[in-house]
């Protein structure tokens, strides 16, 4: 396990980038749970973890002739600032194709410290 930071360093809904063993990793605090993603977009290796965190937008198939209802899904995505590719922060899967995945890392919280299980 590698110690990364104190839990108080990352407010809810925010993230920080850390260099761990020479690799940039984004640590995200989503509703008190901590997630870790490689800071490299699957598209052109943009600094994805530096992008905005947004609530994912979804939609329901409408009745014929009606517009789809759009709503916030309660899931959170981080959006690569270079081209807009968006990824589920919990799974690392692309919001439009979960088979495209950013490397994720397991986080462990002990004594208010965030560790990475590398």
């Amino acid at each position: 396990m590698i110690e990364v930071c104190g839990v108080e360093e990352i407010n809810q809904g925010e993230k920080k980038i850390f260099k761990v063993k020479g690799v940039e990793i984004g640590i995200f605090n989503i509703e008190g749970e901590f997630y870790a993603l490689l800071n490299s977009c699957c598209h052109q290796r943009g600094p994805v973890c530096t992008g905005d965190i947004k609530e994912k937008i979804g939609g329901d198939i409408p009745q014929n002739g009606k517009l789809p209802d759009e709503y916030y899904t309660g899931e959170y995505v981080v959006i690569c600032p270079w081209h807009g590719w968006s990824y589920d922060i919990k799974t690392g899967g692309h919001a439009g194709d979960p088979d495209i995945k950013i490397q994720t890392y397991k986080t462990i919280i002990e004594d208010q410290i965030v560790y990475l299980d590398l």
Binding site: G51, I79, P81, G84
Partner: peptide, 12 residues
């Protein structure tokens, strides 16, 4: 353009 429509979050 897409800047304004894609969430919007593109900063380059």
């Amino acid at each position: 353009r897409p800047d304004g429509f894609n969430y919007p979050s593109i900063k380059r």
